[in-house]
Design a protein around this nucleic acid. Structure first.
Lengths: 219, 219
DNA sequence: TTTATTTTTTAGATTAACCTAAAAATAAAT
DNA sequence: ATTTATTTTTAGGTTAATCTAAAAAATAAA
């Protein structure tokens, strides 16, 4: 059975691997986990011995098939717990992360299967991120940043990139939520801010905001 | 914030303190936690420095007020999680312990309050043990061992002493469960086995079994 | 293609939580 | 009241996971 720390390393490498196809650098992992590169080197050697990552000095790391499966399973647990917290335990979507970080390391296959069933086999977590299945497969959905949507077009809000409390509470305040339809009314060339409409309400959001909202273009 | 290990020590001392009024010996703790006495001495010194236990060399330990509160809270979490597993997640009462041992160390006050509310503020866990309240108060209920009940008397099954899988599955097989009424029909002087009746079924149980079932005498 | 910069690894320490074996204190027995 | 036995503590060591500082390798710049 892997330690919490080992699971967190695998998870970090998994997340980083989505953006970069190459080997993941020691530094990138250190940054992701808020630790030091030397600590990463140490841990990565241990993971390599357990055949959870491929590692060659100075070449970065990549997950092996079994490493990837374990990582996906940790993420599966994290996201299922998040759904429970929001759907059943009255947590807001900006409150779930810290607790899910703990719950994701509980070891019990029955527990996670029952949790999944109890929640009705959800496909997405409260931030719109897909929940991996038992085998570790993730259903990556096509999505765009709101900032890329053209004027007069409509889009469905399907996720968020930033999941910080500050950002999510801002979205709450503005009435921006998953499943809501957003219409782009105007774009300001100077600062790339955009005027949008949600459920009849019109307001302006900065480019930084639009860069952290995922949507599905509806034309 | 306390480590999982520190919490487990406090919990062990709490449990041992219920039976013995005196200071709890290093050896007793070591046995409870399946560790060595020397490890216990180490840890107990650290807990004493944090003012969670009173400790004088060779004199055993006792929980301080804050140590006791933390211990009770860990037990509260353990038992609430057990209720969730049984009531909502289709766990049998012999399957919950291992997972609850992990879940009891999740740190989130909101989570445990919401869990408590979600379950309807249960008073007892699936084995009949009382769930401490937020302040750490435990409602000890008057109960007797089934072995002490006299012939022709009836008793209500309210708890179990042994919570091992083997024992609980035996009870399942015999139809012995919390809330069931047990009538003592006969006692065998030779081996102290007893014939009992539950819901019309009559059968014999050994003294060892009767010594691990808690009941409330109904006369 | 050297030199400079950045990244990564190694070497050596530290901390929590354990361990074994030996010493010291307490409790039991003669 | 000694001796014997048991319990508890100390001393010293181990492992996982971290750290800092220095050395080595890779990358970028001159």
């Amino acid at each position: 059975m892997l330690s919490k720390s080992e699971e967190n390393y695998l998870k970090a490498i998994f997340h980083l691997s989505i953006k970069t196809e190459k080997g993941i650098s020691t530094n990138a992992i250190a940054q992701q986990l808020d630790t030091k590169a030397s600590s990463v080197t140490d841990m990565v050697k241990r993971l390599a011995e357990k055949e959870l990552v491929f590692y060659k000095k100075y070449q970065g790391v990549e997950l092996t098939a079994s490493g990837e499966k374990i990582a996906a399973n940790v993420i599966r647990k994290h996201r299922l717990w998040e759904v429970l917290l929001v759907e059943k335990f009255n947590f807001n979507w900006d409150e779930v992360h810290e607790v899910a970080e703990q719950l994701e390391h509980i070891h019990s296959e029955k527990l996670i299967n029952e949790l999944d069933a109890f929640l009705g086999h959800p496909k997405y977590d409260p931030h719109g991120d897909p929940i991996p299945d038992k085998e570790g497969n993730i259903n990556f959905v096509e999505k765009a940043l709101l900032s890329t949507i053209a004027i007069t077009e409509k889009a469905l809000c399907v996720g968020v990139k930033d999941t910080s409390s500050d950002f999510l509470r801002y979205l709450d305040k503005q009435g921006i939520a998953l499943g809501k339809e957003i219409k782009v009314l105007e774009k300001e060339a100077f600062d790339n801010s955009m005027q949008i409409e949600i459920e009849g309400n019109q307001f302006v959001i900065s480019q930084q905001i639009a860069n952290n909202i995922y949507v599905k273009n509806k034309g």
